[in-house]
Every structure is written in C-alpha cells, then in structure tokens.
C-alpha cells in the first residue's frame, strides 16, 4: 500500500484567523477516511488545501504523489471533488452539467455516456436529466453534484459533507457505491462530515476542532479509549444515587438529560450489580439503558462539548434512525 495523501505541518490562515494548523495526516491508498468536526472546525479549508483551491500558509501536502503548491496541475489530474457549497450550472440541464465535466476531464465519449447514465440512475435523476438544474430542489442538486464528482473515476475522491440533505436510501446507495469504487478501482476516499454515523463507517476517522487535529484512529479504537460502555440510569433521587455510585462502585457519574450517565468497562455484567446496589439503598431504579460508546462520546470527551448541541440532545431522546430522517428532511427543501 502506498501513501496517497500526506500533509506535514499543513496550515492556513485567513487574515488573523488560523483556520487550519499543524495538520499531519497520512492516508493510504484504498482508505475511506473521515474528517469529523463541528461547523467552523476547518474541514472545508482542509479540503480546499488538498484540492489546490487554497494555497497553504504553512507546511506542505502531497496528493497522489504530487505537491499541492508546486505541482497543482498534476494533483488536479488525479482527484475528484464534491464541494460543500453549490457548484453546478443552474442554466444547464443535469446532463449538460455532466457533459461539461466529462469534456473538461477529457473522458472518452462512449465511457461518458455509459457512466453518466449509470450515475444518474444511482442518484435517481434519470427522469429529470434534461431539465435545467434551476428547477431542482436542494437535495436533487446535491445528488447531481455527487454524480458529477464520481463521473471521471478519480484516484482520490474528496467529498465535503457529501450527504447533507439526502434521504437515507440515497445515502445508503452512495455509500455502497463508494465502497464498490474503493474495491474495484482502489480509489481513496477522503470525506468530511459532522454526521457521526458516517464517520463510524469509515476506515479511519480524524477529529478536527478549532483547526487542530485532536484525534486520529479507527472508529473502534477511538471508542475504545472511553473504556467500555455507557449506561444511562434513571432513578428517583439523582443526587443520592450519584453519591452512592461514586462511593461504593468507584464510578464517575455525570448528570445527563435522562438521569445519570456512567462509563463502565463491561456494561451488561455491571447492570444487575448496580441495580442491586441502588435498590439496597432504597433508591428506585426506573430504567437502565446500555449504549456502546459512540464517536459523539469520544468527541465530547476530547473537546468538552457536543459536535452539535442539538444533535447531542436528540441522541438522548431519539433513536439513530429517527435522528437521521429528521435532519435529512430539514435539508432537502
């Protein structure tokens, strides 16, 4: 395996603001790599630097073996980009947008026609392909941008918050497609997201906050740093229960929106013991909820706050599915 993306002390300022700083990354060929971070964390700036749209203020980066600052033309020949913001031509039809892309990337015409048809079907725009993009909804435009970024089968694919505004089925289809792309063509995929569910599905995840890398590992290893499971315990007397667990079980309970939250090494085995302990002290246990630690928990531990305040709140009350569905409908207007 070879290194496809490598940064050394990479940094970028906007005036006085340090948007990205001292970024050291090494990403191997065939990896699906997620850059996770809150809004304003520096994700888009990092993508801009790696795709030659922004010049580094400090440090260096190599993509597909070429330096982004001194060999940008070579870098551009090997990458595909799906931008966070809109970048399709609204006056042109979906097909014309893809056609423009194919021409500017020098794709052979038959290959273009075949792949364009394939991708338009994948993103469910086949029936609307000859309509001007200005008639499209936000979600439809997003899907077109995705199809376009995949069209020329780049060696390295950058996706900046690719699935914002997509429904779960399309999101799933895109993920399957990315996995196949990696499998068949050995493509390397670098994506940014503030959806924790997405980062979970990647090979490795880096967490960026305030322009700085705060963690980088496989999602499993990141979660392992939390040392086990997370228990949510709902009790009648929170203060007394908290004190008891601290004294007698050597735990460090936190106050959650729905009772107490404790990290334990082996959740399923500890539940009976802890319930018995609380029961014995006359504190009624109303519910116990066991959760494997999520990247959200990792994020909170590393940065001291939720990745998005409202998302953190929602995760306590809603299941994973419900949360995803709600966000997507919000984005697809």
């Amino acid at each position: 395996m070879s290194t496809v993306i490598e940064t050394k002390g990479l940094g970028r300022d906007y005036g006085d603001l340090v948007a990205v700083d001292a970024l050291n990354l090494e990403i191997q060929q065939g990896e699906i790599f997620a850059l996770l971070g809150p809004n304003g964390g520096g994700k888009t700036t990092t993508v801009g630097l790696l795709t030659t749209l922004l010049r580094p203020s400090r440090g260096s980066a190599r993509v597909a073996g070429y330096d982004v600052a001194s060999q940008p033309a070579e870098v551009r020949r090997h990458i595909g980009v799906v931008f966070q913001g809109p970048s399709v031509d609204e006056q042109l039809t979906a097909w014309e947008n893809l056609d423009f892309h194919a021409r500017i990337y020098n794709m052979p015409r038959p290959l273009f026609r075949q792949r364009a048809a394939e991708l338009l079907a994948l993103v469910e725009l086949a029936e609307r392909q000859h309509e001007p993009v200005r008639n499209f909804s936000g979600g439809m435009r997003r899907r077109l941008e995705l199809a376009r970024g995949l069209l020329h089968q780049p060696q390295v694919l950058f996706l900046d918050e690719p699935t914002v505004g997509l429904d779960p089925q399309t999101r799933r289809a895109i993920w399957d497609y990315l996995a196949a792309l990696r499998q068949q063509a050995g493509a390397t995929i670098f994506l940014t997201t503030h959806y924790l569910e997405e980062a979970e599905d990647c090979d490795r995840t880096a967490i960026i906050d305030g322009g700085k890398l705060v963690a980088l590992d496989t999602p499993a290893a990141l979660k392992a740093t939390l040392g086990g499971d997370v228990l949510h315990i709902r009790v009648t007397d929170v203060a007394a229960a908290s004190e008891l667990l601290r004294q007698r079980a050597q735990l460090e309970p936190r106050q959650g929106p729905d009772g107490l939250v404790v990290e334990v090494a082996d959740g399923p085995r500890r539940i009976p013991e802890l319930v018995a302990l609380l029961d014995g002290a006359g504190i009624a246990v109303q519910a116990v909820n066991l959760r494997r630690p999520s990247l959200e928990d990792v994020f909170i531990k590393l940065t001291g706050r939720g990745i998005r305040a409202e998302a953190a709140e929602a995760s306590e009350t809603l299941g994973r599915r419900g949360r995803m569905g709600r966000r997507e409908r919000g984005g697809d207007r």
């Binding site: 030659t52 749209l53 033309a73 020949r77 980009v81 399709v88 609204e90």
Partner: peptide, 14 residues
C-alpha cells in the same frame, strides 16, 4: 459567486 468556478479550478483544464 455561484460556485461553478470551483468546478473548473479543480479540474485538469489548464
């Protein structure tokens, strides 16, 4: 302003 330039600027087009 409308972002299309980005599509052109990351492409291999000189």
């Amino acid at each position: 302003e409308f972002g299309f330039l980005k599509e052109v600027l990351v492409s291999p087009a000189p």
